[in-house]
Design a protein around this nucleic acid. Structure first.
Lengths: 245, 245
DNA sequence: CGCGATTTGTGCACGCCTTCACAAGCGCCT
DNA sequence: AGGCGCTTGTGAAGGCGTGCACAAATCGCG
């Protein structure tokens, strides 16, 4: 706080202001606010921090602080302009352009991701599918042809793909990651249960389904051991919404 | 640090020691250590914190501090006993019993999750599938029958299911969560893009695929604006592995 | 025009987490 | 038996994130 970047021409998506360096925790919540804004549905022009915070499942003070990092897009006594705030968050997240994403590994999970319609409405379009297995190459999923992984460099360049999703088995993931990086991809979402090493400048996020379950399992174990204990209480401090992730 | 719980009978899974209350951040990493341990493959009896940290993609000091919270299972000058450490982490995570999980929503994503073979090897077995659509009820996926959601209470009781996975559309998720809670489920993994409200004592973790992509999109946007800037450098401080999640 | 109701933006304090740096402990070799 | 090298376990410091509580700002109404 009390930072620079507060007298500058904040604003108009297109004016490209000095890019704010938001805290990672804030960045991770912006998509949630955006989702909440889209789900409002009623024709309200403005929304209070309290209202939006409730819709997004967070504390209202936290929401205000998060939004304050983007600049002042609220009006005291009134709230936030829904359309303006939506546009601003989308701009910050880089969603004003529909980002091209490629998906590697059209197995069990990859197949589902390729067919997932939740991406289109949230700023992304899957433009290419790849796999190494000859048996899968040539298949059409959701109107999209599965190409051989060797075509990745060419397609990536043509479609200017910056984001890649890995849905291969863990054994193939590192090689695929290397291929993606070589092809110019600078952000990777990894579903394979393994650690990827990539050059600096490339972002990796991972989603491991078993890990999520194991974390829940821990809490189950904890809860069970508490109830078993003499005088143990059941609910510690779990709250109405555990975020994690 | 400098806590209690250090003279107690640490140990033997089955002795049920005073349950350590680990920091959340540590809990989230234990599954990663476990995965790294399983992936070692070579017959080494012990592993150093440096080695395991590298395999898990974290700092070695962090790993040591995390493990120190479980008690002292390492030997100075030698490292950690692989078998003992593995058993201990599995015990803490409550994975010594194969936990029963049910999955609600056998659509696009749910179908893939039901067929995902990565759960079995990591301490879980999916014992029941549910859906509300009559068209899907009766289908058999991976040898498992899809039941109608109305059967949930009965099946949950029979199989003593404590963990539920929601893979329905967002519009149905809250109702399903309520059903799960009523059926005695106390941990929920939510793939639907919405906020769930559950009573205290129930843990919820969420996985939103679009949010993960949006976070990556932000970093793409940031990187792009930096390179466009006069004198802008490309790589900020992204590192070899971005965790997030 | 002024006042009160409302809501944002933020200074501040607290707690959690990370990281460094090192003492304590263990095994091996001579 | 003694010393040396290696590795763990942890005190301490610093940074980050959260939440409270309140001042500043805006609108609407009399």
């Amino acid at each position: 706080m009390s930072e620079q970047r507060h007298g500058t021409t904040h604003g108009a998506p297109g004016a490209v202001p000095a890019f704010p360096d938001l805290p990672e925790a804030t960045i991770a919540r912006l998509p949630e606010y955006l989702r909440a804004l889209h789900n409002l549905e009623d024709g309200a022009e403005t929304i209070s921090s309290e209202g939006l915070a409730a819709a997004a499942g967070v504390n209202s003070a936290k929401l205000r602080k998060d939004l304050s990092h983007l600049g002042s897009y609220g009006t005291r006594g009134v709230g936030y302009d829904v359309a303006l705030l939506t546009a601003q968050i989308e701009y910050i997240l880089g969603l004003d352009q529909r980002r091209a994403v490629c998906l590697v590994g059209v197995g069990n999970l990859g197949h589902a991701l390729a067919g997932y319609d939740g991406f289109a409405g949230r700023g992304f379009r899957i433009v290419a599918l790849f796999d190494a297995a000859p048996g899968r190459v040539g298949e059409v999923i959701n109107g999209l042809l599965v190409r051989h992984i060797d075509e990745l460099p060419q397609v990536a360049a043509e479609e200017s793909i910056a984001i890649g999703v890995i849905a291969t088995p863990a054994s193939a993931a590192q090689a695929v990651a290397d291929d993606l990086v070589s092809a110019g991809v600078t952000s990777i979402l990894n579903f394979a249960p393994c650690v990827l090493s990539v050059p600096s400048g490339v972002d990796v996020r991972k989603v491991d389904l078993a890990i999520e379950l194991q974390i829940l399992s821990f809490h189950e174990h904890r809860k069970a051991s508490l109830t078993a204990l003499p005088g143990g209480r059941v609910n510690g401090a779990v709250g109405t919404e555990a975020v994690g992730s």
